[in-house]
Amino acid sequence: MPAPTRPRLADWTTVVPVLAVLILALTWGRELPGYLVPLVAALLAGAVLAAVHHAEVVAHKVGEPFGSLVLAVAVTVIEVALIVTLMLSGGEKTQSLARDTVFAAVMITCNGILGLSLLLGALRQRVAVFNSEGTGGALATVATLATLSLVVPSFTTSRTGPEFSPAQLGFAAVASLALYGLFVLVQTGRHRDYFLPVNADGGPVDADGDGHADPPTNRAALFSLVLLLVALVAVVGDAKTVSPAIEAGVQAANLPQSFVGVIIALLVLLPETLAAARAARRNRVQISLNLALGSAMASIGLTIPAIALLSIWLEGPLLLGLGGTQMALLALTVVAGVLTVVPGRATLLQGGVHLVLLAAFVFLAASP
């Protein structure tokens, strides 16, 4: 998204993180009254949106490849904070929360964001055009990370349940980080052109070939860095405050405990969804697909290693292996994604296929 050239104190991205920290200071260590739950939840969602916005400003200023890492790390901190907060307060019933959240993130990005981007692009230009080389490489990386971290644990024999042994978990964490780091280097270095917007003839859309607005000023970048830290503190603290209400709401709605992971993923990925939709409406489908698959990659490649490290202090096993229904949905998503990506062109049909897959995932998550 275009970055502001100077900070504005009246912007919602400035006001919301400050309000979220103030409400955190007032409610910390206390049981949250029912009438305050909607307010804290709204400020938590606003702080997530503001954090990602300010991370994008800082990322745009520092440039690549460090910019991609700033944004990915910010989103990962939010996701890990929400997961760990709920795991610490939920006991045994949250042992699979990391798996549920990461899998939900993969399904939302690879079906929801990707499908919405193709649908909007095809509605605008009849055919959505993108670079199959870059998008195919990103999809292959996501499929590898998802299989290694979420499918393999169900078939290992070192532990009785769908979990890794400590050595296996360490290997999966290192491999995930290595693959993610390699992809960032490829995307921002040697094969950067594979991830830039293209037109119907395969040429670059932007005259300068970068697909971005001018970088923000030093003052705007520093202002966003400070507000990014404020927003992250607010997200972590308010998540802890409102987590009992989230779990109570899921239980009151008679939904499975695993649906908490879907809620976390939807909250964390909301900014990326909005950014991808805006890019698709401007005929920048490649940027939308970069956001979708890049978010999926970061969710696995950074969240799993972080949770693996934190599992040293977390009580109980870390259940990562998917069940049969989830594996079937993941396999179908990968197959449909490959058939969508290979031609480098997509119509309304491909967008609809992925959105139906997302609907199937959400329905089966609520009614397994």
Results as ranks from 00 to 15, higher is better:
F171G: 07
S165D: 05
H191K: 13
A221I: 08
D214L: 13
T147D: 07
V226E: 04
V102D: 07
F155Y: 15
L177V: 10
S154W: 06
N111A: 03
L227I: 02
F164R: 11
L169H: 03
S154N: 10
R126Q: 13
L119M: 15
V230I: 09
F103W: 03
A220E: 12
L229D: 03
N111V: 01
T141I: 14
P215Q: 04
T147H: 06
L227D: 02
V226P: 03
T135K: 03
A138L: 09
V106E: 09
A128C: 01
R159F: 02
C110H: 11
P162V: 04
L228K: 02
V226L: 14
Y194G: 02
F103G: 04
F164I: 04
V198E: 04
V142C: 12
A122T: 00
V233E: 09
T217K: 02
V152A: 14
V198I: 14
R126F: 06
N218T: 14
F183I: 04
P204W: 11
F103C: 02
V151F: 10
Q187N: 07
D206V: 08
P166E: 00
D210H: 05
G161F: 11
C110T: 14
V205R: 15
S117K: 09
V184S: 11
L185E: 06
L177N: 06
A173L: 00
G121H: 06
T144N: 09
L120D: 02
V205S: 10
A172I: 05
V186E: 10
V174I: 15
G134V: 00
P166A: 02
S117A: 15
L150A: 10
L185R: 14
T217L: 03
G112F: 11
V102H: 07
P197I: 02
T157R: 15
L150W: 09
G121D: 07
T156L: 12
L232R: 06
P162F: 12
G115F: 07
V142G: 10
P197V: 03
T144L: 15
A122F: 05
L229T: 00
T160C: 10
P166I: 02
D214M: 07
A213R: 00
F223W: 15
A172G: 08
A128Y: 01
P215S: 07
P197A: 08
D208G: 15
F164T: 13
G136A: 06
T144E: 09
A207L: 13
A105C: 13
T156R: 13
G161T: 12
L118T: 01
T144R: 05
V233T: 14
A221R: 01
S165T: 12
L196M: 15
L119W: 14
G170H: 04
A104H: 03
A143I: 01
Q168K: 08
F103M: 07
S149K: 01
G170W: 00
T141P: 09
Y194K: 09
R192H: 11
